[in-house]
């Protein structure tokens, strides 16, 4: 399974992590490729900030924040890191956007595994049985 993530909102990352959970727990290999705003959101100094939810529904935001604060659900990157212990899953960021922002691998949150160009993405897409864009 290959997931292309373009949007940098918390909800998009959470959606990706939930889909990936279904796949990894079913022993399906998952590769996630982040482009555009999603790359920015993965900066080490940014990842904790984007938990400020963008949904236009205050009740939803409050309920989600409460669930995280009380340990009833995990932040998406905590879930993603747990998935790495259970199966084959990796998160790669787009080299172009990393270059645009002047970022090296160490500038990204620990959940990021690699920086790669679009040829890597194209190769992964060619191999993948399932392709999802978020």
């Amino acid at each position: 399974m290959l997931i292309l993530l373009k949007d940098g909102s918390y909800q998009s990352f959470a959606t990706m992590a939930m889909i990936a959970t279904g796949a990894v727990t079913s022993d399906i290999e998952v590769k996630v490729f982040a482009m555009e705003d999603a790359v920015y959101a993965l900066r080490k100094d940014q990842i904790d900030k984007h938990i400020k939810f963008e949904k236009p529904y205050p009740e939803y935001n409050a309920a989600l924040q409460d669930a995280i604060d009380t340990g009833k659900t995990q932040k998406w990157w905590e879930l993603f890191n747990d998935l790495k212990d259970l199966g084959d899953i990796e998160l790669t960021v787009c080299a172009l956007v990393a270059d645009l922002l002047g970022l090296e691998l160490e500038d990204f949150a620990d959940v990021v595994d690699d920086i790669q160009g679009v040829a890597k993405f194209a190769g992964d897409a060619e191999e993948a049985d399932i392709f999802i864009t978020i």
């Binding site: 939930m18 959970t21 279904g22 727990t25 669930a67 340990g71 009833k72 659900t73 995990q74 879930l79 747990d82 212990d85 259970l86």
Partner: peptide, 17 residues
């Protein structure tokens, strides 16, 4: 108990492994 989706599944998968 008390954990939201996919928490119970994740905990089960870990235990089964």
């Amino acid at each position: 108990v008390g954990s939201f989706c996919p928490g119970p599944l994740m905990e089960l998968v870990r235990a089964v492994k």
